[in-house]
Design a protein around this nucleic acid. Sequence first.
DNA 1: TTGAAAGCGCTAACAT
DNA 2: ATGTTAGCGCTTTCAA
Lengths: 331, 331
Amino acid sequence: MRRPTLADVAAEAGVSVALASIVMRGAPGAGAATRERVLDVARRLDYRPDTRARLLRSGRSQLLGVMFDVRHPFHVDVLTGLYDAAGRAGYQLTLSAVTPRRAERTAIGELLQDRCEALVLFSPELPAAELAALARSRPVVAMMRAVRRRDVDVVRTDDALGSGQAVDHLVGLGHTRIAHVDGGTLAGSAERRRGYEEAMGRHGLMAYRKIIPGGPGEQDGARAAAALLDDLPTAVTVFNDLSATGLLDVVRGHGVRVPEDLSVVGYDDSSVSRLGHIDLTTVAQDIERMTTDAVTRAVDRIEDRTVIGRDIVVPPRLVVRGTTGRGRQHR
Amino acid sequence: MRRPTLADVAAEAGVSVALASIVMRGAPGAGAATRERVLDVARRLDYRPDTRARLLRSGRSQLLGVMFDVRHPFHVDVLTGLYDAAGRAGYQLTLSAVTPRRAERTAIGELLQDRCEALVLFSPELPAAELAALARSRPVVAMMRAVRRRDVDVVRTDDALGSGQAVDHLVGLGHTRIAHVDGGTLAGSAERRRGYEEAMGRHGLMAYRKIIPGGPGEQDGARAAAALLDDLPTAVTVFNDLSATGLLDVVRGHGVRVPEDLSVVGYDDSSVSRLGHIDLTTVAQDIERMTTDAVTRAVDRIEDRTVIGRDIVVPPRLVVRGTTGRGRQHR
DNA sequence: TTGAAAGCGCTAACAT
DNA sequence: ATGTTAGCGCTTTCAA
């Protein structure tokens, strides 16, 4: 009960392997009757073309290598969109995960062995120089991370704009004392901080500017909350949703009411922000567009089309939920 | 700047391809000096063996195909453990995701094309007959799902025991009016319901048995909560953590205090249960052991070792957090 | 429209 | 210890 090869199908259908290959690939150059017959046999034998053998000969794998981090719920959302986009472009995805015990280099190494035609990396933390080195031998698209060097393509959200939208929203509600909890050294953190600062400046609120050191985790948000409690602002924009939930938890524990005493805005529109009792106002990244752009860009590079610009910046969208409001003193 | 092949390495090192192959595989039969020289050249050229070509010739891929669902946070946790276990066994993982728009059959089809030596499927919902058909041509390990037919190997948590532990814990705290919100038709739901019922029976509490229809989502939990409010029990065990958070949200919204008025136990020890302000008592599956067992079993089948038993059932462990307590009336 | 033959990068059997 | 040869399953000329 060996798994059938193309030769088996060809023999059974009474044609040459070459012809069978033409049929299986849907390539032109085979009679309609033959086509039908071969396809029929293939179905009957449950034949599956061997991707690897196919690649080996054709030099093409039609494979996009994707590195993602299992710890990041947002990555998983992006994965969904990427499958769709790749399917539309006629490419397959091959996944390699980063885990607490599996480094980026390991994950990428596996993708290279798999002979992907391009690499799509979700918020890689590798030094830009290393990304550039990778990109010398194949197209590399970095998502959710800005890269200064022009060696790799980048698809990312306009994080400065996103933070700005959050501030605009809060100002529109009457807030002036708006703080920002940042994300430390993480990708996107500097941008989001900058967007906050620029928006505060634009609204003439630089006097109220206040930045609390934070991070990506719930604990980071909790710590930031503690720092905030001494001198509570009326609103705060937080690096991401998880950190925001940590912050929410602590301030509520101290009797602070949300949004009456404090408005909170997260970032990512992750599943946690949508939980009924969290119901967090947040900045949503445009996954559909980012994934489409990433695949388009990767394919354009693979197929050697001329493309303009390395840096694709997608605007985000504010999702207003229950953690922002006018606040007690504004009514 | 073509990527280097083994032939390039061999030429550069001044040896035959076969010998270079021996060195690269770490197979015996090469001089120490030669070995060093070849390895050196390989490193200099950044040579990476082509997994596919290797497999094509050797007939082995050392590849375990994994199907997981991006929507299930728990799957992602299991993935982490599986990478570790596979690494220890000298196997690589190839991942294929199920998404809202990518069915199980599609995901599995891709794994088959990749010529994995065995399939590891995370809570597959495919009919048992189809799993059996798959298993005819290669080993199949189903995780987190019971399968009656003895055609595939199964690694799963003793869900009945888990529910039982939850009930035991609640009874230990003095509760008698304990309800159960079930998971509908999902894998594990029947088992968890049974565990609840058996434990209630064991404690002589069948008179208080009460099962509310539910499901895996937050909304399902919210709906169940509504059904519960008319005649509130003092404790409830819920199908999974997400559903439990939905339930928590609604009952709290109605002024019910947790755990004073109602104790709640979830299932899965997922990241959401660990959030500070949820702090849900829950049943943790033993990921480390399950992944180790799954890989061991897959490899044993691949390498044709005799194994006893198809059904590996791993005991879970209750994680007590803040949503369970004695309750007001018991103090 | 069809088939014969070569070869992708590698491993395995055999010979030296 | 090292090289030679054949061939994995497929695609790709090229010829018929």
